[in-house]
Design a protein around this nucleic acid. Structure first.
Lengths: 111, 111
DNA sequence: TTGCATACATAAGATCTTTATGTATATATT
DNA sequence: AATATATACATAAAGATCTTATGTATGCAA
């Protein structure tokens, strides 16, 4: 994930946010979408993504729908009701986090 | 650190940025300064701070000046030349990171 | 047939943090 | 006088998250 270890902790929120916009997505699709949206800045590795998806599922925030497309396996993930609620919380948290960083880093500017 | 595990990875940059503005600071002072600047949002724990300071010192980004004030030990940290250079890099990295997050989270807005 | 893209997965190790604990002095409260 | 809080340092165990490496398998292009 972009060499920077800043992203540590934000992956979950990113996944949830994408799923709140796209109804259902599968793992590989998420990596490609993030790569495209960020113009290559952020490349989610599989070693980070899949365990994260599994955890979100285990927590009941996502539910899976396995499908076979072109003779290849796909696991479509979508938000549960709980996941939708949690997405709002996580996004709030992320925005507060960014605001706090801005305070520390650009003390003279207001955003 | 604010319950949120988002801050993971940003502590180093925060420390460097503060030291780029304050010439020299000691550990406890850093925790208080951050707490005040963020109105309590971000409270750096000692278990995170001290290992981080030691690491920055080991990497040659900070140098220490031990002092005794009111019969109590203080370790004043200041940026080395290398540390000053690295601060610029880390701040650039953090700003790109924030910009990337904004792209993912507020696709409709530009910052 | 070799390589690249698609599509999943996991395990070992690295990194950073929390939580808990320890030492010690100074000051305020009861 | 005793207790609590603030100041000031430190480390160790456990937890969370990620990187890196590896594995399986299909489809397609060179």
């Amino acid at each position: 994930m972009a060499k920077s270890n800043l992203y540590k902790g934000s992956l979950t929120t990113i996944i949830l946010k994408l799923l709140s916009e796209h109804d259902k997505m599968y793992g590989y699709e998420i990596t490609q979408k993030v790569k495209a949206l960020t113009k290559g800045e952020l490349q989610i590795t599989e070693g980070a993504l899949y365990p994260s998806l599994h955890k979100l599922e285990a927590e009941g925030l996502l539910e899976v729908d396995v499908a076979k497309v072109d003779n290849r396996l796909r696991k479509y993930y979508k938000l549960t009701e709980k996941g939708t609620t949690e997405t709002v919380n996580k996004l709030d948290e992320l925005e507060r986090y960014i605001a706090t960083l801005q305070t520390l880093i650009n003390p003279k500017l207001s955003y």
